[in-house]
Design a binder for these strands. Structure first.
Ligand SMILES: [Mn+2]
Ligand SMILES: [Mn+2]
Ligand SMILES: [Zn+2]
Ligand SMILES: [Zn+2]
Lengths: 147, 147
DNA sequence: CCTTATATTGAGAATCAGTTGCAAACTTAT
DNA sequence: ATAAGTTTGCAACTGATTCTCAATATAAGG
C-alpha cells in the first residue's frame, strides 16, 4: 500500500469512515495526475480507468482529501475550483502567465522566512499560504519584443 | 470630481463607454466601502442611497472597475467572489483567520523584495501578486489555550 | 429641436458548478 | 444472519453569475 493511501485510510479511520473502492480509485487518480485539476477533469480521469464512480462522489471525496492534508486548493480558473495533490510535495508558489496561461511553480522557502517573521510579529499561526503571482513569462516577453 | 471618478471616466472613454448615473453610484459606493465586498453587499449599499440600480448592473460594472484598475478581486469566500477598491491603496497581504473569519491586512513591501529576486531569476515580469495566508489570529490562539 | 446610431438598463430567464435527498447496496460488528 | 451505520449513484435542487431582450437614455449631426 502506498504512502498516501495509508495516510488517507488513517484519516478516514479517525472519522469513522471507510476506504472504499471509489475512494481508492479517486485517490489513485489524484496522485497519478501531476497537474492542477478540477472536479470534472478528475472525474474523467477516474472514469477512464473504471466505471466505478459518479461525479457526486468526486465532489464528496475532494473535501476529504483536502481535510486529510493530501490535496490543496489551487488557483481557481474559469469559474471552477481547482486542486492539486500535495502530500510529499514541498509548498510552492504559482506563477501564472496571463498571456499564454502557463503556470510555473517555484519553491516557497525563500519567501517563507519573510512570512514567518511578519507572522510572529502579529502573533499569527500560519497554517496555509497561497502565493500566486500573475504577469508574463519570459517566453511571452520575448514574443512581445518581436512585435 | 474625485480622483477615482476621473480615472473611471477616462477608462470608459477609451472604450467608448459612458459614465452614467448607475455607474457613478456604484463607483461611489465602492470607494465608501472600506472592506472587502461581494456583488450583493455592494448592491445593498448602493440601494440604500438610491433605487437607481439593479443587481445586473452591479455585475456588469464590477469587471469594468477591475479592468480600469480601480478594484481588484480579493479572497473568494463562501462561494462568492469578493472585491476591494485599490486605487490609491498600497498592495497588501491578506491574513485570514480560519477560526473567526477575521481578515487582517499587512503591507507587502518586505515580501516583495524576495518576490522580485525570484522573478528576475526566472525572467518573469510581475503584474499582480496575491498573497493569502490562512491560519489562526492571536485572539483565537488565546481562546484555544483557555480551553 | 429632430433624427439616427449606439450604449445602457432592469427584469427575468438561463446557465452551470457544486450540493443534497433518497433509496438501494455495502460494511462491520454483534 | 441481524442490526446499525456508511456509502453510492441518480436526479432534483441551489444559488451566484451571465445572458437576452425590449424599453430608455445619450451624444452627435443636421
Ligand atoms: Mn501547484
Ligand atoms: Mn484587502
Ligand atoms: Zn507566457
Ligand atoms: Zn481569529
Amino acid at each position: 500500500m502506498q504512502d498516501h493511501e495509508l495516510k488517507f485510510k488513517d484519516y478516514l479511520a479517525t472519522k469513522g469512515l471507510k476506504l472504499t473502492s471509489p475512494r481508492k480509485h479517486i485517490l489513485d487518480a489524484v496522485f497519478d495526475l501531476h497537474e492542477h485539476f478540477n472536479a470534472e477533469e478528475l472525474y474523467n480521469r477516474v472514469k477512464s480507468i473504471t466505471s466505478d464512480v459518479s461525479i457526486a462522489t468526486i465532489y464528496r471525496t475532494i473535501p476529504l482529501l483536502v481535510d486529510a492534508g493530501l490535496v490543496q486548493q489551487a488557483l481557481r480558473s474559469s469559474g471552477r475550483d481547482r486542486y492539486e495533490h500535495i502530500y510529499g510535495h514541498p509548498k510552492h508558489i504559482h506563477w501564472l502567465c496571463k498571456a499564454c496561461g502557463a503556470i510555473v511553480e517555484t519553491d516557497l522557502n525563500t519567501l517563507m522566512g519573510a512570512v514567518r517573521e511578519q507572522a510572529s510579529l502579529m502573533g499569527f499561526r500560519v497554517q496555509e499560504t497561497e502565493i500566486s503571482i500573475m504577469g508574463l513569462c519570459w517566453k511571452c516577453i520575448d514574443n512581445e519584443k518581436q512585435i
